[in-house]
Nucleic acid binder design. Sequence first.
DNA 1: CTGAAAGCGCTTACAG
DNA 2: CTGAAAGCGCTTACAG
Lengths: 341, 341
Amino acid sequence: MKRVTIVDVAKHAGVAISSVSSALNDRPGVSEATRQRIMQAAQELGYVASLRGKALSGRKAYAIGLVVHRDPEVFELDPFFGAFIGGIEEMLDRSGFALVLQSSATPEDDLERYRRLSADRRVDGVILNELTIDDPRVALVQELGLPAVGINPDPGFPLPHVRQDHESGIRDLLGALTAAGHRTIGHLAGPGDYVHSRQRERVWRGFLAEHDLTPGPVIDAAFTYEGGIAAAETLLSLPGALPTAMFCANDLSALGFIAELQRRGVEVPADLSVVGFDGIQLGEFVPPRLTSVRTSARRVGHEAARILLEVIDGDSPEPAVVEAATPVWRDSIAPARARRP
Amino acid sequence: MKRVTIVDVAKHAGVAISSVSSALNDRPGVSEATRQRIMQAAQELGYVASLRGKALSGRKAYAIGLVVHRDPEVFELDPFFGAFIGGIEEMLDRSGFALVLQSSATPEDDLERYRRLSADRRVDGVILNELTIDDPRVALVQELGLPAVGINPDPGFPLPHVRQDHESGIRDLLGALTAAGHRTIGHLAGPGDYVHSRQRERVWRGFLAEHDLTPGPVIDAAFTYEGGIAAAETLLSLPGALPTAMFCANDLSALGFIAELQRRGVEVPADLSVVGFDGIQLGEFVPPRLTSVRTSARRVGHEAARILLEVIDGDSPEPAVVEAATPVWRDSIAPARARRP
DNA sequence: CTGAAAGCGCTTACAG
DNA sequence: CTGAAAGCGCTTACAG
């Protein structure tokens, strides 16, 4: 079956293709009567503009790119992506844009993806997620002149971005911990090259300083269940008394952490209170149900797409701000009690 | 900065653009000497062909589509997608194709996505994942003339597809159960509209029939952790004795199922052996570690992309067969013991 | 307001 | 083997 093109619509409506184009794209310069006629012709023929013609002539790909790391475990259990992508789609869809998803094995490969996405003009812009300290992608997109928006960057970030406040939520959790009598609060930190790992640690450190509390142990962990298990082993092998509470930079690792502590005879939260960050579903189900901070991946994705579309349109949008992440009160905080000897 | 086009390369090499096109696409009709000269010119100018020109002129989008359901919980914790998408990418990448990912809220929306993907010529083909009984997408892609490949369909599927045998793995698990003395084996079934739910149940039923065993209770459950919890409640509310073992169609629900059973005082595997299907990471960590069947989402994705590319090329590829899913022996099977009264 | 024409950057017959 | 030309399906100045 032959594809119906703009030429067919023009013929059917008895006008020039330029008028069809203007009418269908809500551009001015077409009388209401003509517009109606064109709309109807398009409708009758079942015309849908070909993206290929549009793309070549309009100098736009009508697509944006997202490159995610292939690290299987992260991708497997990270609850962020589903909602994040859903939010992106939600926004994109109305604009006739699509999401091109790529997965990369390494950071170098990552850069190569962006480079090619730009070189072959596959997308009009990209979303920069999981920013790292001095993220090389920032310089790259600047060099390429590729529109980009960052997710939750540190202050001073040179590109358009969207931000969701995480500080108030974490502070609420830490406040609940001190209110429950905790004085030694440790931190299960995420990989140090991610800005969000650092950001979360910074809030913890700042809170303790303000309250004249000495920071408890800091243990590095991958953002995975296994990472949490390893962290528990590390904590238990540390000399001296255990902290009475831990703030984990990530729920998934918090769950592994708790499971391993329990396996080794440390009661959570009786012996050790634990709070996480992310608000994943699974935290609702495990014992004890995990107190955490819930972020809005969907909203963040939505806003990222919105901002990016504006950048692609040639605007310089203000950073988008999504409502702050909120505490999720569940069962993993208990009153501090005397430390184990 | 001005984009370098095929015209620039032709000029720089002192040839016609048609020769450049032929040379760069490894088409015959260019002498080795000319080809060399063109390659070098392209290299020197940093030329990368624009997909927009290629797409319009070559009548191809150089992209394939995947539409996934937006159901947050599934998307959140389903380990399948990450690996599956990784596998697709792996294959696509070499061919210069990209993955366009869309998320849909409802089955109707789903069809609309495919329809538009085809109408605006955004993609050259699609992957049909999570097939349902009488899946309406099959008729749709046939009607649209949209190349498509199905994942693990039932016999008689009219489109190209890729299949991973699940039967042998499930039978191994069930065999281990009977070898451990289990005679009453129930089934935690997935949503009945999915063909893979039915397939798994069918294997279970067939195995029992062959061994002259009366099927234990069948409980329907969503493919989620919560679904497993609900299923445990249902099982415990059933009149009569408990089965001594359950085969779950899905690991995530198996984990919820086990957790809830334990919460209610049923020891797993001592009182009740449980096996799952999927082989997700998380099953490695929870107590008891979940015995399951591991599928190869990555391989399946890889083969699906390969087959689809062939269909797009105009071929009629044989169904792809990925090596069978294999049992993962862990700790959730114990010898059958006298049932609780 | 309306339409004829050029042009986006390629591929593909088709002459030479 | 090589090159000039048409054409893919649109958008966008530019005349009328």
